[in-house]
């Protein structure tokens, strides 16, 4: 199971890298989204994919799942949710202000000499 997951993660990272290297702002943002998905999946896989009872008080079982990776992922998902939302708003604003979503045209300064 872990091996399958690792291949999936690899695909996600490859897709993310491809998208992030493109020029369109929207694609870059989708790329960062894929990248964080890959990272979260990696976190889950790295904790070990086990079958077991939820680690709660009062549950009697032979085997428990490790709650730490799940807690970490929840935190990381919330954070990447916030960051992605902010990134989208920012991209929208800069599209309005600069009039392009091409990252190539978003360079240079106003006063140069």
């Amino acid at each position: 199971m872990e091996v399958v997951m690792i291949i999936v993660i690899g695909c996600l990272f490859a897709g993310a890298t491809y998208l992030m290297l493109s020029k369109s702002l929207l694609r870059i943002i989708i790329g960062t989204g894929l990248l964080s998905h890959g990272a979260h999946l990696l976190l889950l896989t790295m904790g070990g994919l086990k079958k077991g009872a939820p680690p709660l008080l009062g549950v009697q079982a032979e085997q428990y799942v490790d709650p730490v990776p799940q807690a970490l992922i929840l935190t990381a998902i919330v954070i990447s949710f916030g960051v992605t939302a902010f990134l989208l708003v920012l991209a929208y604003r800069s599209y309005q202000e600069i009039g392009t979503d091409n990252i190539e045209q978003m360079r240079g300064k106003e006063d140069h000499d």
């Binding site: 960062t32 976190l43 970490l72 990381a76 990447s80």
Partner: peptide, 10 residues
């Protein structure tokens, strides 16, 4: 920074 945060998680 989003990229480096993803690296941090990894």
């Amino acid at each position: 920074n989003v990229f480096s945060s993803a690296l941090f998680v990894i």
